Simulated assay, not measured.
Amino acid sequence: MTDFWTQILDFSQAETQRVGTQLLQDFGQAQASEKSDGSLVTQSDQWADQELRNAIAHTFPTHGVLSEETEHIFPDQDWCWVIDPLDGTTNFARGLPLWGISLGLLYKGIPVFGYVHFPPLRQSFHGFWQGSSGLTMPTGAFLNQKPIHASQDALTSNHFFNLCARSISVLKNPFPAKIRMLGVSTYNFLTVAAGATLGGIEATPKIWDITAVWAIVQAAGAVWHPLEPNPIFPLQVGENYSQRSFPTLVVSRADLLPVFEPLVSSIRSR
């Protein structure tokens, strides 16, 4: 691994663990307020966002930043970090130990690296995804430094599929797998990357919910399937991403797309 990518990985690990250690002190005690989109925010979200933006500005001064809490307009810079300082704020505020810190790195608007740390679980996922970037870089997806890969299992009624709170309408019809609802967009898709589930859907994720996991999921061999016709990436310079959602289906193998996509297709029209 080149010095640049080693620096990227070491920085992401160190900063998410540093911020996560402090967030653990506030876990279950933070007072939450409601944002305009109905989601919750706490002072812990805002503190973590500021800490991560400061760390990026200090270590990578030529890189741009897009973040959930403050910076919503995609900048005109080749390298840009996308931050979700606390994915799973409702879980965090209510004392459920499933929430994380997400950092994604884009090159010319396309994710090439993702790192997501879940302090209560002591789990850290990361991945490198070259895609069409043209970069010379490492490849692979990892959980706590060990390689992971999407499951190749045949679908049975005892395998898992993840829903989000806004996609439960799909249960009006019989579903061929056991349903789980985790309440954290990143973890929803990362369980597919790690081989624990065969698929998952998020009806209204924002760009900071998906950038890091976009790289990790594909590096793990899973299939990312947007439920809208327009491509998500590359992000467009000057566009405000605060209100745009990206309904997405992720499955462990391409042959599962014709199984699950018709069952969740109604999500795309929302």
Rank of each mutant, 00 (worst) to 15 (best):
V217M: 07
V250Q: 11
L163K: 00
Y187M: 12
G95C: 05
D10G: 07
S39L: 14
A48G: 00
L182A: 04
E239C: 11
W208I: 04
L163T: 05
T139A: 08
I73H: 00
T89F: 13
F118P: 02
R18K: 07
G127W: 09
E202N: 15
G127K: 05
V237Q: 04
G221S: 04
N91T: 07
A150N: 09
W99A: 04
D49A: 01
D76L: 00
T6C: 07
L227F: 11
S39A: 08
G88C: 13
R244T: 14
A222K: 03
N230K: 12
N54D: 14
T89P: 03
I267W: 04
Q145H: 14
G64M: 04
P247H: 07
F260L: 13
H225F: 12
D78C: 02
D10E: 13
L135V: 08
H149G: 07
E51S: 13
L9N: 12
L155D: 01
Q130M: 09
L9E: 15
L182M: 12
Y115N: 06
P97Y: 05
A212L: 09
Q43M: 12
Y115T: 02
A219P: 14
L257C: 02
F74P: 10
L106Y: 10
P176W: 12
G38P: 14
A215W: 06
P231L: 08
M181S: 05
G114T: 03
E261V: 13
E51P: 00
P120M: 00
T156M: 07
A165N: 05
G134H: 07
S67M: 08
Q29W: 08
Q130S: 13
H126V: 14
Y187S: 01
F246R: 10
R244C: 02
D209I: 02
P234K: 06
S44R: 04
P205C: 10
